[in-house]
Design a protein around this nucleic acid. Structure first.
Lengths: 261, 261
DNA sequence: CCGTTTGGTTCCATTATTTGAAACTTAGTC
DNA sequence: GACTAAGTTTCAAATAATGGAACCAAACGG
């Protein structure tokens, strides 16, 4: 994973190591990390030691393996409650889920990837990969495209560079050109579709969550299956979804910056 | 919160800043952080910049406020799935909750504090970070005492130094001496009680989760209220709880280190 | 039983990064 | 249009990170 760009300073390297540990699904030995990284032995060793001492990693003394530490969980609890839209959006998601009866996703953008921060399952739950905290691709999901469509040129460029354009299904937009054309259509239309571009049989209609100043905060989607409904039927809900998105945005702005106005 | 002890190196300071941002429940301005920290202006500024650049913090360009970044949520997802006992323990917690009908807590130790990593409420279903990720004191909770009772001497010493011994209720063990005596009794007995030591009316019976080598992985508790039941009744469940704890430990060992033996 | 490999830890002189007082630039006030 | 508060940049000195190499310990092999 030398894909890390410019690791600024020691902090960047330390976080890089953190990601490295996270990328394995299980505790890793020192030598595994050493093989994977470009850092010299002593450097990596001290980074691990520091992170462990700080509680960001946990060293299993029996096996000599490193795992992500509990301090991270604690920080994340705060991050989820504070930085994400999830706590603000919760009642609105409930409302949208109740009114549509479909699966709802709330997502935010994280370095070119879609991060699902909350979710409501339909009464008959649609089995999907997405769960709170999980990440997914931006170029082939409704929420991803909705956010890209309203992203700043710089953010869009950065995000594009990070897309794999892997062809998940026949419908996947598998080149930057196709995606850019689609983004324009989405802007014109006001909402994005997922036409089975990521998973066969899964469709959705997604809208961006925008501040008054036009900045993208996240996206909201109503998801279903081709077996249950059609894109046209989902599009009928677009108005309602946009309304909910607007209310989330309004509350986010007033809640996070209550002193303004 | 200058309570941070020895911040080793730049990484320590950066994480310290991260905690500082987390401690406010909402986005903070640079000057707020400056006032709170001992770091000089330029130092703090660059730390914030680095963390922001790394995605650990998010700078709201409109308001100039810092919030915890989404990268943390992503890392946490991995941490929760990997470092904590929660995913392994899930079915066992379900079983224990079903058999006892009481509230169940799964906790781990984090630098002298109890970190709740999963929970079953008597009725409601669970969500991810929503419930997990909270912290509590070690010296006056069942799970905390259960873990301390089997902690290594070094870990115990470190943990003791971090306890506040604040007298939450009449029953709180408010000195290290009382606590140490209690820990001995707990070791002898095999399980810990919370006799309304943290909250009036709340009682529980907790057991440690131990590896074969005797290392503490976490603790498990069955919690109720004095209105609903008694300590003696809870103690009747201790056998079942210990059994569940043993099964969690066994699975944790075989799952996390499948190559051994 | 001893030589060897493997995996992990420590040393230390060199190097590069961090530091922080102060100067500077905005943006907002009166 | 001076005055203030909030944020950003500079630069020499101080400090911390670096990494090659040496070291240690435990497991391995003959």
């Amino acid at each position: 994973m030398g894909a890390e760009g410019h690791a600024d300073g020691t902090v960047g390297k330390a976080l890089d190591v953190l990601d490295m540990v996270a990328s394995h699904g299980r505790p890793v030995r020192f030598s595994d990390l050493l093989a994977q990284s470009d850092y010299p032995k002593a450097t990596l060793y001290r980074l691990l030691q520091t992170l462990t001492h700080q509680g960001m990693l946990a060293l299993d003394p029996d096996q000599g393996t490193y795992a992500l530490g509990v301090r991270l969980v604690r920080l994340a609890h705060a991050a989820w409650a504070q930085s994400s839209l999830a706590p603000i959006a919760r009642p609105y998601l409930d409302e949208l889920a109740a009114k549509t009866g479909e699966t709802i996703h709330l997502a935010q953008m994280d370095l070119g990837q879609v991060l699902y921060v909350d979710k409501r399952n339909a009464a008959r739950p649609v089995e999907m990969f997405a769960q709170a905290g999980k990440v997914g691709p931006a170029y082939c999901t409704g929420v991803g495209k909705a956010m890209l469509a309203w992203a700043t040129p710089e953010a869009l460029e950065q995000a594009l560079a990070r897309q794999s354009f892997y062809r998940h299904t026949d419908h996947t937009l598998d080149t930057p050109e196709k995606l850019l054309a689609e983004l324009q259509a989405i802007r014109a239309r006001g909402h994005a579709f997922d036409r089975e571009e990521h998973e066969r049989g899964i469709i959705c209609c997604a809208v961006p969550i925008l501040t008054r100043s036009g900045r993208v905060l996240g996206a909201l989607s109503v998801t279903s299956t081709t077996a249950r409904t059609t894109l046209a039927a989902l599009e009928d809900q677009a108005g309602l979804t946009k309304d909910i998105a607007a209310r989330i945005a309004a509350e986010a702005e007033s809640w996070r910056f209550p002193e303004q106005n």
